[in-house]
Design a binder for these strands. Structure first.
Length: 274
DNA sequence: CACCATGTTCCTTG
DNA sequence: CCAAGGAACATGGT
């Protein structure tokens, strides 16, 4: 969102090319195109994992939101209007002499005018309103494993599979602990870990130019290469995620992988007790 | 060939 | 009502 906002703010949407109709909702053909062609982008916001394009309608008489979700492999970027579209281009929006490209190899992403997808989302973890007490209320009474609970978007909005594992590692809590059985001190550690892990990831991403040249063929992860500050690659920054069998950076023990709710969890049994 | 993958939604079963 | 498990979506990497 921070990379994209300055590239799209204030621009008018011209031709909309839908190359994968399943990505666009509602799925009445042309309905979304008619609503947004000629609209002006007032700004870009984010809610949980959704991008929210604030639009002024083509007639200029009202405002509407266009909501995007990148799924697992989606990317959005702006390229010259003369540049060829990528192989898995789902949608392209003409913006003056350039095009906003929504590329998504697996087509799990979404572009929709249906704002109801935002209903029921829990608090933003970096908001002031998200206190340890709010997190505690979201975990209380649950018999789910805390890792699974963190992926529930009604409890905390925007925490995904990678950062759920990373936050639990930082909080030194086993992902298998039952959410409702955590003590206030442990919830406090988890709250702090969630916020610092996400904050660092955002700051890391913000230091890197959004330049996709030469990145064709990669998946949707932000493999930035070396950060300007010399922080290593995205993967190198992760402590446990994707590191099954490697050594724990804290205690030197072995990182393990398990499956919870059909998703991979990575943790260090030495550091993360219970 | 097998298995893995950052997400969401729907369905079935208990 | 809750939780768990599976499948679907679709493509590519190892």
């Amino acid at each position: 969102m921070r990379h994209l906002a300055p590239l799209v703010r204030g621009r008018r949407i011209g031709v909309v090319e839908v190359h994968r109709s399943r990505v666009v909702r509602p799925d009445r053909p042309g309905q979304v195109c008619r609503a947004i062609e000629g609209a002006r982008i007032l700004g870009l916001a984010r809610r949980a994992k959704y991008l929210v394009f604030r639009l002024q309608s083509p007639g200029g008489d009202r405002e509407l939101d266009l909501i995007g979700h990148l799924g697992m492999t989606g990317r959005m970027y702006v390229q010259p209007g003369s540049a060829a579209l990528p192989r898995h281009c789902a949608v392209a929006l003409t913006l003056g002499g350039r095009r906003l490209v929504f590329e998504d190899t697996r087509y799990f992403g979404r572009l929709t005018l249906d704002v109801s997808v935002l209903e029921g989302l829990g608090p933003e973890p970096l908001d002031e309103a998200f206190t340890p007490e709010v997190l505690a209320a979201g975990l209380a009474g649950s018999r789910q494993a805390v890792k699974v609970r963190l992926l529930d978007q009604t409890v905390v909005a925007g925490v995904g599979n990678i950062y759920a594992s990373e936050a639990l590692f930082r909080a030194r809590l086993s992902p298998m602990r039952l959410a409702g059985r955590l003590k206030p001190v442990e919830i406090g550690r988890l709250w702090e870990a969630l916020r610092s892990v996400l904050d660092e990831a955002i700051r890391f991403g913000s230091t890197v130019p959004l330049d996709w040249a030469g990145m064709g063929g990669r998946d949707g992860l932000f493999y930035y290469g070396s950060a300007p500050g010399g922080g290593g690659s995205y993967e190198e920054r992760l402590s446990v995620y994707g590191r099954d069998g490697e050594r724990c950076p804290r205690c030197g023990g072995g990182v393990r992988r398990a499956v919870q709710a059909a998703r991979s969890t990575f943790w260090c049994p030495g550091c993360q007790r219970g």
